[in-house]
């Protein structure tokens, strides 16, 4: 697995005053990740502790 050159990224060329915008895939992935983390935290906080052994007993 060779490393391709990292010099051909999208975005304005160096020297231009405006830095590159955050790509769409980063925004979507970040939003999904945040939603998943929030969901996990909610399950942990609102759950009734049914991970204890003997829950079926």
């Amino acid at each position: 697995m060779a490393d391709p050159s990292p010099t051909d990224d999208t975005g304005p060329e160096p020297g231009r005053p405006t830095p590159p915008r955050m790509p769409g895939w980063v925004k979507v992935s970040g939003a999904v990740l945040i939603l998943v983390i929030v969901a996990i935290v909610l399950v942990m906080v609102l759950g009734d502790g049914d991970h204890e052994p003997g829950r079926h007993g």
Partner: peptide
């Protein structure tokens, strides 16, 4: 996937 951070830029 492409995308350089501000720091990288």
């Amino acid at each position: 996937p492409r995308g350089m951070t501000r720091y990288g830029w």
